[in-house]
Design a protein around this nucleic acid. Structure first.
Length: 470
DNA sequence: CTATGGCACGGATT
DNA sequence: AATCCGTGCCATAG
C-alpha cells in the first residue's frame, strides 16, 4: 500500500523537491509559521474547516475515516498506526514549561537576538517609563544570558530605587529563556525551579542542592551531597537527574547555543513534540499510534471557488491569479509529500524501535540512518533532514530528540549507568569494559571513559560510595 | 604498574 | 566538504 503511494507522490519538479526537503527539515513551529505565512499571502490557499471523528472526537486530517477508530481489527499487534494529526492544541507534556507559554505570543527565537527576543515578550506588560531600564539591562547580557553588571549600578545610573530594578529583573527572568538576566547559573536555576514548581512536583532536595550544594553539584560529588543534606544517595540522584533534565544553568544558550560550551547540561524543555507516540486510548493492550503533528486545525487545499473565479477574471489579473493557484497547489503537494515521507519514516522507525519506545533506552536497536534510507528507498540525507531538530513524545510522556532513535551508544550508556549505580565498590574503566562485554556490549576502554564523562560520572578513584547505607 | 585524559584518525552524519 | 563520534596510542598522575 505504501509502495503505490510513493509512485503517486514522487516529486515532479525540482521546485517540488526543494520545497519538500525544506518542509521535511522544519520543526513544528517552523511549519506553523510557514503555513501561516502562505495562508496570509496567498488568496488561492484555504484552510478547510476541521472535521472530527464522530466517535473519538479526534481532529481528522487528510484521512477520510478516523485512522484510529476505523482501524481494521485483524491487524497484528506489531503494526503501528501512523497518521497525520492536525491539532491546534499541542497537548504539551505535563512536566514542561509549554503550558506556561501558550501560543498567544509568536515565539521565534531564531530570528531576533537575545535582548530583542526577550524584550518582545514582556514589552506589553511593561510600563513605558520602565522600558529604558529593561533595555539597559538586556543590553548588558552576555552570551550565556547572564547580567554582567551590578543591580546597584543600574539603580544609581537611573536614579531609581533598587527594589524597582529587582522587580524588573524578576520579570525578565520569567521570560522565555527562563532564568535569563540572572547573575549566576545558580540564580538562573533557582528561578527555573521556582516556576517549574508551580506546575509539577519537584523532588526533595532539588532546591537545597542548588541553593547550598552548587560546589558539589558541579563536580558531581553526589555522595558529598548526600552527606551534607543527611539523606540517601538515591534521593540525591533523583534530584540531580531532575535538575539536569529540566533546568538550564545557561539560559542564553538554550536557543542561541554556543558551541564553545563543553559542560552544558542540556535542556530541551521549551518546545512541543513534533511527533507523539502513544497507545490508542492509552490502553497498553492496544497497538501504538503515531501522530505526526500538523500545527493547524484542518487541512490545506486550493480554494475551489478561487479556481472557478479565475475563469471570469479580468485579463490583466489572470496571470497573477494563476500564479497564486500554482503556488498554492505546489505548497499543498509539498506538504503532502512531506507528510507522506514522515509517515513512512515513522512507520518503519516505530516498528524497528518498538522495544526502545516501550521499554526504555536499553532496548534500542543500533540502526543507522543509511540503513533506514535503504528500507525507505530515499536518499540518506532525506532521513537526516527529517530526523534532525525534531522531537518525539514517547508513551511515557517523555520528550526526546528524534535523533536518539539512531543513537548507537544510548543503550550502552544506560547499561553503564545501571552497573555503576549497583556497584559495591568503585569499578575501574577496564572492569566496566568486561562487565559490559559480558552483557553483550563490546566497547573500548577509552569509550567507557567517554561515556562516563557524558553521563557525568566521576572516575573510579574519585567515586566513593554512599555511606554504606545500601 | 594501573587508571585516565588528550590527541588524532577513519567512518558516519549533516 | 565539514563536522561529529568511537577508538587506538601515548603521556601523565597516583
Amino acid at each position: 500500500m505504501f509502495q503505490q503511494q510513493i509512485q503517486e507522490t514522487r516529486p515532479l519538479t525540482t521546485a517540488h523537491l526543494a520545497q519538500t526537503m525544506a518542509l521535511l527539515h522544519m520543526t513544528i513551529e517552523e511549519i506553523q509559521q510557514s503555513i501561516e505565512k502562505e495562508l496570509s499571502s496567498n488568496p488561492a490557499l484555504e484552510l478547510k474547516e476541521e472535521r472530527r471523528c464522530p466517535t473519538c472526537q479526534r481532529l481528522l486530517g487528510e484521512h477520510e475515516p478516523c485512522p484510529v477508530c476505523s482501524r481494521p481489527q485483524n491487524i497484528s499487534e506489531d503494526e503501528p498506526v501512523v497518521f497525520i494529526s492536525p491539532r491546534d492544541d499541542f497537548s504539551p507534556r505535563t512536566d514542561s514549561y509549554a503550558e506556561e507559554y501558550p501560543d498567544e505570543r509568536d515565539l521565534s527565537p531564531t530570528v531576533d537576538d537575545l535582548p530583542t527576543y526577550v524584550l518582545r515578550q514582556i514589552a506589553l506588560e511593561l510600563p513605558a517609563q520602565d522600558r529604558p531600564l529593561v533595555a539597559y539591562m538586556l543590553a548588558h547580557l552576555d552570551d550565556d544570558g547572564f547580567l554582567t553588571i551590578d543591580l546597584v549600578e543600574i539603580a544609581m545610573y537611573f536614579h531609581v530605587p533598587l527594589s524597582k530594578i529587582q522587580q524588573l529583573k524578576r520579570m525578565i527572568q520569567r521570560a522565555d529563556p527562563l532564568g535569563v538576566c540572572s547573575s549566576s547559573p545558580q540564580e538562573a536555576m533557582l528561578v527555573q525551579l521556582e516556576l517549574l514548581a508551580e506546575t509539577i512536583a519537584v523532588p526533595n532536595f532539588a532546591y537545597e542542592i542548588i541553593q547550598d550544594g552548587m560546589a558539589f553539584l558541579t563536580k558531581r560529588q553526589f555522595n558529598e551531597l548526600a552527606h551534607q543534606f543527611n539523606t540517601s544517595l538515591s534521593n540525591i540522584q533523583d534530584a540531580v537527574s531532575y535538575i539536569s533534565d529540566n533546568l538550564n544553568p545557561f539560559p542564553g544558550r538554550s536557543h542561541w547555543g554556543d558551541v564553545r560550551d563543553p559542560v552544558k547540561i542540556s535542556v530541551e524543555v521549551f518546545h512541543r513534540p513534533d511527533i507523539i507516540i502513544g497507545h490508542i486510548n492509552d490502553d497498553p493492550e492496544m497497538p501504538l499510534a503515531v501522530e505526526i503533528i500538523m500545527p493547524i486545525g484542518g487541512t490545506l487545499r486550493v480554494n475551489p471557488l478561487f479556481r472557478k473565479a479565475i475563469k471570469k477574471a479580468p485579463t490583466e489579473q489572470k496571470e497573477t491569479w494563476k500564479q497564486d493557484i500554482d503556488r498554492a497547489s505546489l505548497f499543498v503537494k509539498c506538504l503532502q509529500q512531506r507528510n507522506h515521507t514522515m509517515k513512512r519514516l515513522m512507520y518503519n522507525l516505530v516498528k524497528i524501535q518498538k522495544d526502545f519506545i516501550l521499554q526504555g533506552p536499553k532496548y534500542i536497536q543500533p540502526i543507522t540512518r543509511v540503513q533506514l534510507s535503504r528500507v525507505l528507498d530515499v536518499h540518506e540525507s532525506t532521513i537526516s533532514r527529517a530526523v534532525s531538530n525534531k522531537t518525539v513524545q514517547l508513551p511515557n510522556k517523555h520528550i526526546i530528540p528524534m535523533a536518539d532513535f539512531f543513537d548507537r551508544s544510548l543503550n550502552v550508556r544506560t547499561v553503564l549507568r545501571e552497573i555503576i549505580a549497583k556497584e559495591t565498590k568503585p569499578l575501574s574503566d577496564a572492569k566496566l569494559v568486561k562487565l559490559l562485554s559480558a552483557k553483550g556490549y563490546d566497547v573500548a576502554r577509552r569509550t567507557v571513559a567517554k561515556y562516563r564523562a557524558m553521563e557525568g560520572i566521576l572516575p573510579a578513584h574519585l567515586r566513593n560510595l554512599p555511606n554504606q547505607t545500601s
